[in-house]
């Protein structure tokens, strides 16, 4: 049947199917990306290996990096103090490449909850969390996080007590926030590694809470 033939046509020279996102009709903007990349390589601006290395470095960044910082802050009061005093330096201390930006850690407590947004664009602590989720970049999140943050949090399944102070932090290209979530109850005996597993991406954006053990 035609569909089988269609699938067969989409095997790459290596015999594997192309990634689904590579086998749609070539778009204008994809064509531009290829052209820019090839021009920069031809002109000696960049090498293909450099571009791949940058992608690899990006792929290695994930919320696990931020979770390691959070778990250490939960277990090492001196580190927590350094993190809150200078997030960039504290993250560098753990070996993370923060680049030139200022990283500001904001701490959730029993009475304060923090939420981060970039109302102007998509600034995000990508060096610690990886690339931002799609919703972080949407008009809906950017507009409403500073207008009705409690309603936004409810859409993420977080219902804050009315007595909790909610602070919303608007990031810029040069200054990016990360939330230090509150340590869950019942985690006294857990190791740093076990604690890190409770730290979700959303808990470091403020649209979630750390998981219960």
């Amino acid at each position: 049947m035609p569909h089988d033939h269609h699938d067969h046509d989409h095997l790459s020279p290596s015999g594997h199917p192309y990634r689904q996102d590579n086998d749609g009709a070539l778009t204008y903007w994809q064509t531009m990306e290829i052209a820019i990349r090839e021009l920069m390589i031809e002109k000696g601006e960049l090498s293909a290996a450099q571009i791949q290395a940058q992608i690899d470095a990006m792929d290695e960044r994930s919320p696990a990096n931020g979770a390691a910082v959070v778990a250490r802050a939960w277990t090492d009061p001196d580190f927590r103090n350094r993190l809150l005093a200078n997030g960039s330096d504290a993250a560098r201390e753990m070996g993370f490449d923060i680049g030139p930006m200022h990283l500001v850690a904001v701490e959730n407590t029993a009475h304060i909850h923090n939420l981060i947004v970039c109302t102007l664009c998509s600034c995000y602590p990508r060096n610690l969390l990886g690339l931002p989720p799609d919703w972080y970049k949407t008009r809906e999140y950017r507009s409403r996080a500073v207008r009705e943050p409690r309603a936004v949090l409810r859409e993420f399944g977080v219902e804050l007590p009315v007595t909790t102070t909610l602070r919303v932090h608007d990031s810029t290209a040069d200054m990016r926030y990360i939330v230090l979530p509150a340590r869950p109850a019942g985690t006294d005996g857990l190791s740093v590694d076990a604690l890190a597993k409770l730290v979700t991406r959303d808990s470091m954006i403020g649209t979630g809470l750390a998981k219960a053990p």
Binding site: L120, D134, R139, Y141, S143, R144, E155, F156
Partner: peptide
């Protein structure tokens, strides 16, 4: 682009 505070619909997750 300065969208903060505008009205908008549910966040598409």
């Amino acid at each position: 682009h300065d969208m903060g505070g505008d009205a908008a619909g549910p966040v598409p997750l």
